[in-house]
Amino acid sequence: MMSENKSNKSQKSNSRYIRYLLLVSAALWVLWPISIMVEEGFRVDIGPLFSGRGASFVGEFFQGQGGIKFSPIEYQKALRIEAYPRLLVNSVIIAVSSVLVAILAGLPAGFTLALYKFRGKAFITYALLAMRTISPFAVLLPFFLIYGRLGLFDTYGGMAFVYLIINLPIITMMMRGFFKDIPKEIFEAAFMSGASDSYILRKVALPLALPGLAAAAVFAFVGTWNEFFYALFLTGAVTKTVSRGVWSGFSESIESFKILEFDELNAGGTLAIIPAILLSLAVQRYLARGVTLGAAE
């Protein structure tokens, strides 16, 4: 009996160690690439530790001359006022205004989708799902042509509108989910009290779903912040966003496309993901709802 107990115990602690080993290796898998990016942004490269020189094994491609000497120069360059801060302002203006419009439109729509059954409900849900999933190329050319004609190319308004493609489905469907989370009798009691839909939305639904609205807005903001494709084609010198700047250089003008130094890319990437990661961690409970629009619940 005794020995059996003992072996059971040691087996248990063994499996605990294995579990921790797996957890830590999974955490390494997640964090290692990021930490390399951060350090390479500081021009730190562990290669020379072994060889005194960086190894170039990627075809013919030029390798950054790394060293183990820590240098904040790339971050300093990126943080000059005309570089990252300027693009950050652009990204924030575009994302915030787009998310606000999405909230104005999506909040009442999410309310209606959550509380009512009606003809056309499937169409709207499907359209929002398609909007979220569509390849940007399927709408890019018309946007390109129309924006050229209307002078919306490289404008804040134009970008905010394009990003409704990302933000409207997120806000509408996430809010629909948050309204669904409220017991339906609360809404029924409000209906029976004679309250109009807009009164219920303002006085009952919204106050109860306010934390949800904040989460949806943050999630949508991060989605817009990270978006690269529309920014690549529809922004220019004026409205260039951070995520586009990562690739084409924070302070470079759009026209003079030059191949970036690798350290510069890494410093830029680091600065671009910091806000996104912090914001996403704040809403991590709702990430799955955000990504799948609540379909996976």
């Binding site: 009798e185 029924e188 009691a189 029976m192 009290s193 004679g194």
Partner: peptide, 28 residues
């Protein structure tokens, strides 16, 4: 149901959790 001039009480009370008792009663 808004215009039927009826009231309803639910098993789970269905009070508005964000409002005080006073505001709940005054709501209709």
């Amino acid at each position: 149901p808004r215009e039927r001039n009826i009231s309803m009480v639910f098993q789970n009370f269905a009070l508005f959790p964000n409002m005080s008792v006073y505001d709940n009663i005054a709501f209709p």
